[in-house]
Amino acid sequence: MEGTTERVLRLLALLQRRPSWTAAELAAELGVTDRSIRRDVERLRALGYPVHATAGPAGGYQLGAGTRLPPLLLDDEEAIATAVSLRLASGGTVAGVGEAALRALAKLDQVMPPRLREEVRTVHNATDTFGGSSEIHTDTLMTLARACRDALRVRFRYRDEERTVEPVRVVTGGRRWYLMAWDTGREDWRTFRLDRMRDLKTTTWRFKPRDHPDPVAYVQRSVTDAPYRYLARIRIKAPPDQVRKLIPPLAGRVEGNVLIFGGEDLDWMAVYVARIPFEAEILEPAELKTAVANLANRLTRLV
């Protein structure tokens, strides 16, 4: 049985290597008869691989697309290229791609041999990108992704404090990455920025998942309600769906037709408000009204 299993896996690798093979070519590659090839093809079909057969002198076998994606066999070069691409994509800004790439990378990293994992790390360490998100080490993402999947507590230093948490989900807002987790020390849900974590370690403590709020909504509210120096509330005369398009989800939120966002610099906030393409009214804070008025005066003098 071991010989049959190994041969079936080799057959699958061959079918993934090029679009079409004749039965004779496959038999020669594997050192078996055409009849053995037919039996092995049926075994692949039973496992969910859509192997198509074409009769005639020019016929052969072809691995087709099915209703679901079956497991793939990757050689060393393909595995390294895939892992490097996923690492880069996990830090990207394309909607939905970052988190999906992170999940796929966690699966690949789990089964990748140590020698290939080191090759991937070498390539990644020698690669830089510019623009986009805060600097996040991929090992941090991988550690947290596995801990969320396996329901394992993690421990790290955060603003010079040691925290032990039960991670639920990693959430990205395009420019920053956050972890939603149950803080065992404070006995409450908390949001943590990944770029502020230090000395991250996975423990052996497996926890029972708790009922939890929606991770994206919770992180969004935590970030927008963070202790900023100023918290702006702007009533905008436009439909809520159009108002939501004005600001990234983790930079602010919309309640009805009121846009809420925080900031530390009134001048920057005034510029942002001035760029709103709809009629709007500043509800608070009063300091922002003054900053916008000052900006308007400066612009008037310029022209």
Rank of each mutant, 00 (worst) to 15 (best):
R43I: 11
N125R: 15
E29Y: 01
T93L: 09
S85E: 14
K107P: 00
E77G: 14
D75C: 06
L26M: 06
A100S: 13
Y61I: 10
S36Y: 01
S85W: 14
V41K: 07
D128E: 15
R115H: 13
P70E: 00
L116F: 03
P113M: 07
A95F: 11
A101R: 07
T93H: 04
S90L: 06
R39V: 11
A65T: 15
R68A: 15
A104T: 06
I80V: 15
R68S: 15
R117M: 08
P70R: 00
K107S: 12
A81H: 14
R103H: 13
G59T: 08
G131H: 08
A83P: 07
Y49C: 07
A104C: 10
E99Q: 09
A24Q: 09
G48D: 07
E77S: 15
E119Q: 14
T82G: 00
L69G: 03
A100Y: 04
L26V: 09
E119G: 05
R68D: 12
R115W: 06
D109L: 08
L69W: 01
R39Y: 11
A101N: 10
V41W: 10
R38C: 04
V41L: 13
G66N: 05
D34V: 05
A28R: 04
G64Q: 06
M112A: 10
R87G: 09
D128C: 14
G96T: 06
S90C: 14
Y49S: 07
P114M: 03
E25F: 03
A79C: 12
P57W: 07
A126P: 00
L72M: 08
A55C: 06
R38S: 10
E118D: 10
A83F: 01
G92A: 01
A55L: 14
V41F: 11
L102W: 07
L73D: 00
L72E: 06
E25K: 03
S36G: 02
E119C: 11
P50V: 12
G132W: 10
A58G: 15
G96Y: 13
A104W: 01
